[in-house]
Design a protein around this nucleic acid. Structure first.
Lengths: 112, 112
DNA sequence: TATATATTTAGATAATTACCTAAATATCGA
DNA sequence: TCGATATTTAGGTAATTATCTAAATATATA
């Protein structure tokens, strides 16, 4: 989840996601949209891949990138929970009971 | 929007948001949840404030922080649009028509 | 007014990130 | 196999970020 948010924290990468939302594209096609060197775009694509937000598949000479909407939906779920649109979590309920210990909860849980 | 995503790209800050989702808290109360110096937490709170994700209000000796769910909902909207749950944008429609120019769209629009 | 508490600001440093150019790798087609 | 095309990897640098301690600011209370 942290990787997803980190990957989304860059405007170039968010624009790449929007481009892949429309259709699958090759690395070169994606790079053509930006005023940036191809290696830099490759770096961004790798960040998105590492976050599992996109997948790649070699097609002969080209490498085709596609969006993995599942991970986007996970991020969406995190936000939905927070904006109150989603259901309340167990953790939240406990805290509202006032029983939660007040130290050292900064260890990252899987969910976040 | 970029500031929002950048602010959300840190686990400490996301945890702070979760804490404020439950109830308003003072800077000191928030800091007590983490193994981190108070100045560092202050820095994170400032990042959240700069992204307009939280608001602060002095209450005598204390400074009370609260969540601004409006901005979270904007981020939510961005993601909803991408996961296909939301309505399609004009930009996307144009692109699907195949008329979009293929250079220099990396200038950040307000929406992103 | 003096002291204690709550919080931020300042200043320094280490780690991370984004970008570039050059070089390496993989595939295609003659 | 050779030359062209597509893409990534390597290596370097500049900018940003996260963290700390020490100092400054604001408020409360004795």
């Amino acid at each position: 989840m942290n990787e997803s948010f980190k990957a989304l924290a860059d405007p170039t990468r968010r624009q790449i996601i929007r481009l892949l939302r429309e259709k699958d594209r090759t690395a070169g096609e994606i790079a053509d949209f930006f005023n940036m060197s191809k290696p830099s775009i490759s770096h961004h694509l790798n960040a998105l891949k590492h976050a599992d937000l996109v997948q790649d598949e070699r097609k002969g000479q080209f490498i085709m990138y596609s969006l993995n909407t599942t991970v986007l939906e996970e991020v969406l779920g995190w936000l939905l929970e927070l904006t109150g649109t989603g259901k309340q979590t167990e953790t939240e309920s406990k805290s509202l009971d006032g029983k939660q210990s007040r130290q050292n909860i900064d260890s990252e849980k899987e969910a976040d």
